[in-house]
């Protein structure tokens, strides 16, 4: 599947200038309120059958962005256009039918399952909520079919979540998300908590389901190796701002943003010769506090190439070509 070909298609989801700002109460009795700009003006399109990776360090706003798209966190400003319609601020009654098509799976597979429900009840719940007219037998049959599809034995339908391993719990989460045959699943670090051998199983399952059901996926992750494997396009976030957005092949072969370069070069490669001899861009320090982001380019305090202009001017998101956008004053020299 090629994301460039998809560009001519109509996007299933368009995010326009999306902002999520949280207000923090000040310290002390009369402390001044502070703004935390978790997501600060993000634009992208998502096409049918496409996987978009959202990467960045913890605290960059990637999970908040995912939840804001689903309206689980109300955006402060901007638009989330789902199938041609802006859903920001839509009332609960209008959102409810749309949720059939918009699902999410979480990082901690066990914590996201109700321990008092059997896995059959957990997987059936979306059907019971959204398709109340289905009979009991039909629901049970669909649940069993979906369990088999995601690699769970259907005879385990009456077991409880604690009886399953982490990988199996993630399969239960996927079955619950898939039971309504949604158009989009937001996967929030779905394999980070799993062992290496199990990660590959879950990644392959997601890719199979995508092909079978023409699913669009938003894959939120800090693991750039898995993202390279599963995603067609990649959005790099830093302190709630887009640093780079590009097709998989262009971003890994020729990253244009110093932050993307540093992220890619920091990932260890499981090959001693390559790992010990590769060139690395080492970032100093930690992520600055999002309540007090740097002026100009938010990345400048850790950027090895920062110049004076980076402290004063906010870089625009420049389009280099059809499938590559970058926000850096000096991307031409990268």
């Amino acid at each position: 599947m090629n994301a460039i070909g998809k560009k001519k298609a109509v996007p299933i989801l368009s995010v326009r200038d999306l902002k999520v700002h949280f207000t923090l109460s000040g310290t002390g009795l009369f402390g001044k309120e502070r703004k935390l700009k978790a997501v600060d003006g993000i634009n992208f399109d998502l096409f049918p059958g496409e996987t978009l990776g959202i990467v960045g360090e913890s605290g960059c706003g990637k999970s908040t962005l995912g939840r804001a798209i689903l309206q689980l966190i109300p955006p402060t400003d901007g638009q989330v256009i789902w199938l041609g319609r802006d859903i920001v601020g839509a009332p609960h009654s209008a959102m409810q039918p749309l949720r059939r098509d918009l699902q999410i799976i979480f990082q901690d597979p066990l914590a996201s399952l109700n321990p008092r429900m059997t896995i059959g009840e957990i997987i059936a719940e979306p059907l019971v909520t959204h398709k109340a007219d289905l009979g009991k037998e039909e629901i049970k049959a669909r649940v069993k079919r979906m369990m088999a599809r995601v690699g769970l034995l259907p005879q385990m339908i009456n077991r409880y979540p604690h009886e399953f391993s982490g990988g199996q719990c993630q399969r239960i989460g996927i079955a619950r998300a898939m039971i309504l045959e949604p158009k989009l699943i937001i996967c929030d670090e779905p394999v980070s908590a799993l062992d290496v051998s199990i990660q590959a199983q879950i990644v392959n399952l997601l890719q199979e389901l995508q092909r079978e059901f023409d699913l669009s996926l938003i894959f939120i992750s800090h693991d750039l190796s898995i993202v390279r494997h599963i995603c067609h396009r990649i959005l790099v976030l830093y302190l709630g701002n887009v640093m780079e957005l590009a097709d998989r092949d262009s971003i890994y072969a020729a990253p244009k943003h110093p932050y993307t370069k540093a992220l890619i070069s920091a990932v260890p490669i499981p090959d001693p010769e390559i790992e010990r001899n590769k060139e690395r861009i080492v970032l100093t320090g930690d992520l600055p506090s999002p309540t007090n982001p740097p002026s100009g380019c938010v990345f400048r305090t850790r950027c090895p190439f920062a110049k004076d202009v980076c402290a004063t001017d906010i870089p625009t998101v420049d389009t280099i070509n059809d499938h590559h956008q970058v926000a850096c004053h000096f991307h031409e020299r990268m």
Partner: peptide, 24 residues
């Protein structure tokens, strides 16, 4: 199996990842 199932950042692949079947 462990070595084969690690997705690598320095290689692009369209195929599915090698996965060790079953559970630990």
């Amino acid at each position: 199996g462990l070595l084969k199932s690690m997705p690598r950042i320095d290689t692009a692949s369209e195929d599915s990842l090698f996965a060790i079947p079953g559970q630990p």
